[in-house]
Design a protein around this nucleic acid. Structure first.
Length: 838
RNA sequence: GCCCGGGUGGCGGAAUGGUAUACGCGCAACACUUAAAAUGUUGUAAUCGAAAGGUUAUGUGGGUUCGAGUCCCACCCCGGGCACCA
């Protein structure tokens, strides 16, 4: 019998499927839609990693099952092709990233097609295609116009030798990844996106989506909401006040000092002359500490007395103001009230610098720090109150309720070549005008933001929110999008820290779209996360050139029904795209408030030794090699069988060998069945097995328990082989159950050997008959005194009496029961009978 | 430190509170072969035993239960995330 020739089969069927277009989604079909999404790959020079096919095979299986169940399935793929490796390669070799990217995409496309994924290739998108990034730029401009983008001075990592801005990932132990030179911090203005404006909704709406609990938890923590109070402390000898944020207002009477961050602006005005040198020295030292040092030195608290005092509003006492870098300028107000008796950090600080410690919550041990809640003491009129009650009361009397988030705004600028140009120009004339408008607004109405907003809305034709927020920055009009990435000579960041685009005067110098005067283009580009924040929307209508996607198509296809991706994107891509999506929902251009109804995550594939795969360890498995040696079906099926989908599992070359054996046996068996004439109808036992397997495989695919689904198919094959040839329809059930895992071999059997004219991928998914699954006899475990002593076979509907009678017929068991006093008998039908001894 | 996972044969792993170790790998023996590979058959947690059979095992120690890998408490170890967040 001829073995399965996977090479020919892969060629033939890939071509046929593409020609027939059977995997192409149909917009507005009457069939129920199912949008199934995998994270599109970055087309690296190394080619596909074995991790990609794990996620892709899983959702391919789900997509294929849904099609067989009659759904209209959208299962697209594309390329997240902006990014550092292509750019670094360009810096080294002068090769245009576009060329590298194109070459890599072609390689990836070939690999994905060889693996037989049922992608709708007619909807391929590429984030570096101007027709695509036109809409990335358009979305950015909407954010800008609504006042959600702003410029801010920030520090970036800078390698003085390579003269290049580095991403955090490129900084290794404080040094440049490439040349080892210590990285310095360089200050420059960066575009920021106000993701914090959506913090509460990003948190609340987690309740409306089906994500794994661990993903929700991680996002929750990243957003980091905490409730507390803002309390003002009057500074002695000055008119000004210091505002602090605290989650424990109930401990206010125990606040024996204040601590402000070294960067706190208030320090400029309140430090007395005799303390200035010490304070300045401390500030300088704090600035020099890089992040690594800050974490290393975490335990040892340092600080300096500012020389100034403030008044605790509760006790009326004067307390010192200290400066310490354990207080972060980027969280809360950059200042805290220190309650050493009830906060470990404050406690450590107070001990070191000998500041008084006043306990105000009972429940602690003398001389130790107690962080729990309790009944108040040393708190005047509040004595005897419970913490929660006191917190409310003190907030009311001395402060204001306040909510803080850990989430920071998104640094959106890159001084890089290979990214979407930020489509803004800076116009000095318009800057003046916008500034004076803003000032006029302020003068006209000091009372608040709401009035200012409505005033600006009346002048919408003049300035958008974003332009008022960023005077002089003018959006490129929609009809001039995309702002195409120009050709450059060098791909390196310039000496000044600007992107290479800054070195092209004829590109930078432009006219202001608003006033027509001389203006300069923004030379920063967007981060890689930009294009991936909305790509799933583009798949619904990838060739539209008048909108990022047609509203009707969006209404039909979105939200994404099932999105699988890596845990590493939980607080980056996944959060960013939820933010963009909510914004697009708010401006009325997408129909849902959440992009993904359901999210799942795959585990990593580790090297054979159980360590992470990496080039330096030399344990990288190349998918091409596996596909050549074992075929796409075996490779796919092995990746599903190797372990629980959500867990990390080491690769095993012997493991894939086992799958190859299984598929070959399946091939031979089914083929033998087709050649057999006069096969007897299935006996009840085998039929029961078939129906149980249908149910098992169907359920396991839904819960992504692919390893046990494959195992169930193996068990079925073992049983069938032992049984001998089966009728055609049983063989076809087996083929259909296996087809999502092994599409090539099953298609070969289905069309060539079973004689079907259409693909197995459009055949109906097998149904099971619950009646035919019912066992007529069952094996019952017999326990005596809780110990397993044997098994008996009884009818599935046997009563306890019948089971006991059966036990009596069993000599070995009766021997065991001899002389034993049975206290009671516990019988669980179909499972167990336990003779409980006294 | 905090928040998630997880700890079961030589290995990957399976197991609605009810026969632990399914399935696969590896290994061993046998068959086929001049031989090897491939394939097939059988066996394979440990331990005592010639066998029948017994005993012990799901990180450790307790508990609940007729019965615990599974539930509860405490602890140890491994992986991931966050980390001076007031």
């Amino acid at each position: 019998m001829e073995p399965f020739d996977f090479k020919t089969s892969q060629e033939v069927w890939s071509e046929t499927w593409e020609k027939e277009g059977i995997y192409n989604a149909k917009d507005f079909s009457d069939a129920k839609k199912f949008y199934c999404l995998v994270e599109f790959p970055y087309p690296s020079g190394e080619g596909l990693h074995v991790g990609h096919p794990r996620s892709y095979t899983a959702l391919d299986i789900i997509a294929r099952k849904r099609r067989m169940e009659g759904y209209n399935v959208l299962f697209p793929v594309g390329w997240d092709a902006f990014g550092l490796p292509a750019e670094n390669y360009a810096i080294k070799t002068g090769t245009h990233p576009r060329a590298t990217t194109e070459k890599n995409i072609n390689n990836f496309r070939r690999q994905l097609k060889e693996l037989g994924f049922s992608f709708d290739w007619s909807r391929e998108v590429n984030t570096t295609d101007p027709a695509y990034y036109k809409w990335t730029q358009w979305i950015f401009l909407q954010l800008f116009k609504q006042g959600l983008a702003y410029k801010k001075k920030m520090f970036i990592n800078w390698c003085p030798k390579d003269k290049v801005g580095l991403a955090n990932e490129e900084v290794v132990n404080g040094c440049c990844e490439r040349c080892g030179t210590p990285v310095i911090q360089r200050e420059r203005e960066q575009w920021m996106l106000k993701i914090t404006a959506y913090a509460q909704r990003l948190l609340d709406d987690l309740a409306t989506v089906d994500y794994p609990e661990r993903v929700k938890k991680q996002q929750e923590e990243w957003i980091g909401r905490s409730e507390g109070a803002k309390i003002k402390f009057r500074i002695s000898n000055f008119e000004s006040e210091i505002e602090v944020f605290t989650t424990r207002p109930d401990t206010l009477f125990g606040a024996t000092f204040l601590v402000v961050s070294p960067e706190h602006p208030i320090l400029d005005g309140i430090v007395p002359a005799d303390h200035r040198d010490a304070v300045r020295a401390y500030q300088e030292a704090a600035k020099m500490k890089n992040e690594l040092e800050r974490t290393e030195l975490q335990k040892e608290k340092t600080g300096v007395f500012s020389g100034a005092y403030a008044t605790n509003p509760a006790t009326g006492k004067e307390i010192p103001i200290w400066i310490a870098d354990y207080v972060l300028m980027t969280y809360g107000t950059g200042a805290i009230m220190a309650v050493p008796a009830h906060d470990e950090r404050d406690f450590a600080f107070a001990k070191k610098y000998d500041v008084p410690i006043v306990p105000v919550i009972s429940g602690g041990v003398d001389g130790a720090c107690y962080q729990g809640k309790g009944v108040l003491m040393n708190s005047g009129a509040f004595d005897g109150m419970e913490s929660d009650e006191a917190a409310k009361a003190m907030t009311k009397k001395f402060g204001m309720p306040e909510v803080q988030f850990k989430l920071r705004d998104w640094v959106f600028s890159r001084q890089r070549y290979w990214g979407e140009p930020i489509p803004l120009v800076f116009c000095p004339q318009c800057a003046q005008e916008a500034q004076s408008q803003t000032n006029a607004d302020k003068n006209a109405d000091q009372r608040g933001h709401i009035q200012r907003e409505s005033a600006s809305r009346q002048r919408l034709s003049a300035f958008s929110e974003g332009e008022l927020l960023n005077p002089g920055w003018v959006p490129v009009p929609d009809d001039q999008l995309p702002v195409v990435l120009p050709e450059v000579e060098k791909y390196q960041t310039s000496d000044t820290g600007d992107s290479p685009l800054a070195l092209i005067p004829q590109w930078v110098e432009t006219t202001c779209p608003r006033c027509g005067g001389a203006a300069r283009r923004e030379t920063d580009t967007m981060p890689q996360w930009a294009g991936s924040s909305w790509y799933y929307l583009r798949y619904t209508d990838p060739h539209n050139d008048t909108a990022f996607a047609d509203k009707g198509k969006l209404a039909y296809w979105t939200p994404v029904d099932w999105y699988n991706g890596g845990m590493e994107h939980t607080t980056l891509h996944l959060l960013y795209s939820r933010f963009w999506h909510k914004f697009l929902f708010d401006i009325g251009v997408v129909p849902t408030s959440e992009p993904y109804a359901k999210r799942t995550s795959h585990g990593l594939i580790l090297g054979e030794g159980g360590e992470k795969m990496s080039k330096s360890r030399g344990n990288v498995v190349n998918p091409d090699v596996m596909v050549n040696e074992f075929g796409a079906d075996a490779f796919r099926t092995y990746e599903m069988f190797m372990g629980p989908f959500e867990d990390s599992t080491p690769w095993s070359n012997n493991g894939i060998l086992g799958i190859e054996r299984f598929l070959n046996r399946a091939w031979k068996y089914v083929l033998a069945c087709t050649k057999e004439t006069n096969v007897a109808p299935l006996d009840a036992d085998t039929e029961r097995m078939v129906h149980k397997t249908i149910r098992k495989v169907s359920q396991d695919i839904e819960t992504m328990s692919f390893n046990t689904a494959v195992s169930a198919l193996m068990i079925l094959l073992n049983t069938l082989e032992a049984h001998g040839p089966v009728p055609r329809e049983t063989g076809e059930v087996f083929i259909r159950l296996l087809s999502p895992c092994a599409p090539f071999m099953t298609e070969e059997l289905w069309r060539h050997h079973m004689g079907h004219t259409t693909s197995v991928s459009v055949a109906p998914w097998p149904a099971y008959d619950a009646e035919k699954m019912k066992d007529d006899v069952v094996t019952i475990a017999v326990q005596i005194g809780g110990k397993m002593r044997g098994t008996i076979i009884v009818s599935a509907t046997a009563t306890q009496q019948e089971v006991e009678d059966e036990v009596k017929k069993n000599d070995a068991l009766m021997k065991r029961l001899e002389g034993i006093k049975v206290h009671m008998i516990k019988y669980v039908p179909g499972r167990i009978i336990n003779f409980i001894t006294a």
